[in-house]
């Protein structure tokens, strides 16, 4: 409110200052007019020069006088308060019609909100950095930037070794059949058929599992040109949910030094879905919750839970 009063008192000075500015402008333009007109209308050259210089001096004096007047008035007007934290936007708070244009309160809210966002983003980035999800043995830090071509050793395993590991896993679980193919270069793609329950497409990069998609036993897993369809999701909600959980499992099972153990653990976990429709939830004892069977399998005990029943 102090600001408002202050401005009210100095309104007179404002009007005078504006007048002074106008006077200054006109005197300055008179100087230039005089320069433009030059020397004329006098009989002798000397007379002309004298008259011109006298005029010019007069005009400059009047400019000087107006400028001084303006400076004096500007001191009277006083400076706008600059101690406001929001600087010029703080002047919005002077708007008397708060109801119609609540700009100032909105501005404050936005400011608070963005401050909070920044704070939380900082916390989140700190936490995420602690729990890195990078699954390769190589520490992708500064060194990786310096040597971008250096590949983690576990990514350059020979295809023969990958085939061996997969076929061993295939023999390990009789109710699970794994079909390996390499449609695009050395990266393997697995089609895992689990009993008569579901099919899983697993995209590998060396022995790392990059992506998995779970579909129903009666769903088509091939595109029209006969390739494995690694992009489209299942039509059934239950398998979309299982796909989500399988992706979680990929991130859970990680042991960069022994990638074959990771694949085996993942397949063991996947095998527990053989009873997807037969096992009731271990917590609530029911089969259905929101129309879905227990789609979650515990990573250690492999027990069945509904997504919302797991701890």
């Amino acid at each position: 409110m102090a600001d408002v009063l202050n401005v009210g008192v100095n309104l007179e000075a404002f009007a005078q200052a504006i007048g002074a500015i106008q006077a200054l402008r006109s005197s300055v333009s008179r100087v230039f007019d005089c320069l433009k007109d030059g020397m004329r209308n006098k009989e002798t050259l000397e007379g002309r020069e004298k008259a011109f210089i006298a005029h010019f001096q007069d005009h400059l004096h009047s400019v000087n006088r107006d400028l001084n007047e303006l400076e004096r008035l500007s001191n009277l007007v006083g400076k706008p308060s600059e101690n406001h934290p929001l600087h010029n936007s703080g002047l919005l708070s002077l708007d008397p019609v708060q109801d119609k244009t609540p700009l100032y309160s909105q501005l404050l809210q936005a400011y608070k909100w963005s401050n909070k966002l920044q704070y939380h983003a900082g916390l989140a980035s700190g936490l995420l950095n602690q729990q890195s999800l990078k699954r390769s043995a190589n520490q992708m830090g500064v060194s990786a930037k310096r040597r971008p071509k250096a590949q983690p050793t576990t990514l350059v395993l020979p295809p023969q070794y990958v085939d061996d590991v997969i076929s061993r896993i295939d023999r390990m679980f009789p109710e699970m059949s794994i079909h390996l193919s390499r449609p695009n270069g050395t990266s393997a793609m697995l089609l895992v058929t689990l009993g008569k329950v579901l099919k899983v497409i697993v995209v590998m990069r060396s022995l790392f599992i990059d992506r998995t998609i779970v579909k129903g036993y009666n769903e088509n897993v091939y595109t029209e040109d006969g390739k494995l369809d690694i992009w489209s999701k299942s039509n059934y909600q239950v398998f979309q949910k299982v796909t989500d959980h399988a992706t979680t499992a990929l991130l859970h099972y990680q042991l960069p030094q022994m990638p074959d153990v990771v694949v085996r653990s993942f397949m063991t976990w996947l095998r527990s879905y053989i009873k997807l429709f037969q096992a009731p939830c271990q917590r609530c004892g029911k089969f259905l919750q929101d129309g879905l069977p227990p789609t979650w399998r515990d990573f250690r005990t492999l027990e069945a839970f509904h997504d919302t029943c797991r701890q």
């Binding site: 059934y236 398998f239 429709f277 037969q278 259905l288």
Partner: peptide, 20 residues
């Protein structure tokens, strides 16, 4: 029940749904 193809697998699940 669309996702399942073996009747004996999902009878209990179907029954629970029917009773609901």
């Amino acid at each position: 029940y669309g996702p399942c193809v073996v009747a004996s697998d999902c009878w209990n699940l179907l029954l629970e749904f029917l009773q609901s």
